[in-house]
Amino acid sequence: MTTTTISLSGNPKRHRRERVVKRIFWASAAVSVLISAAIVMSLIGRATTFFVEVDKSSLVDIGWFPRRGLYDLLTPLAGTVVVSLLAMFVAVPLGLGAAIYLSEFARPRVRRFLKPILEVLAGIPSVVIGFFALTWLSPNLVQRVFDSAGIFSMLAASIGVGILITPLIASVSEDALRAVPTSLREAAFGLGAKRSETVRKVVFPAAISGIVASMILGLSRAIGETMVMFMVGGAVGGGIRELNPLRPGTTMTAAIASVATGSDQVVGEGLTFESVFALGFLLFVFTLVLNTVSDRFVRRARERY
């Protein structure tokens, strides 16, 4: 009787190739981690310098004039809050309405036609939206309705940002709605529910986590949006703290952009440069929190049904 040893150790060349492939993918993943870390580090250093060296009384003042040593952080913060909330007022009804129509009411043929249009809208660069807001929305809509509004206003910018994030909200919540199993819709129809009742009482509640996630994604996009506010917001180089959306204002992102691009070609004094890092850091924390919360919701959405 002969005994042959069976080798189950496999081809060593294939093993090596497998290891190389694994390392390549590991490296790509590592780079994104490194870049994130580098961003945080670059922000933290200067931001710390700013917070340590700044005259604390100038942190709360009449407005944000970084080149004159007035660093009222509440000014860009207020602008960001006003603009992103108003943008949500525009984008949530439009985006959700479109999502519900596409997922629950549209016939397949209509859907095949509308969905790509929505995606094209999502791909429009924000500078184009900014231009549209400045040359069309502001004179034809905002100024017509509100006499007191100037050509530059936070409201015009808000509507622009709202249009910008509508496709995002629509597409993410449509995914959430479509992910609701057909069996649930059938159950509701089988009990004599009308289509609108089925949407309101079954499909929408079942998709609520995903829908909330879409809103938070939209909100963090609105907070991070720079160009529209930069073009239409008005008070980019600096401005008085303002909550009235009909007045010009600045957001955190637009304020950073204006110092970074040096639109007035002045180096500024003292901590002007550092102040931008402080803003950037605040913004980073802001969006990080929102994204984490949104991530939670998305995960919960997966577990629902």
Binding site: P181, A187, G190, L191
Partner: peptide, 11 residues
């Protein structure tokens, strides 16, 4: 009324 193949209670 209708009862389906897979139990499909609402969440």
């Amino acid at each position: 009324g209708m009862v389906f193949q897979k139990p499909n209670p609402f969440p």
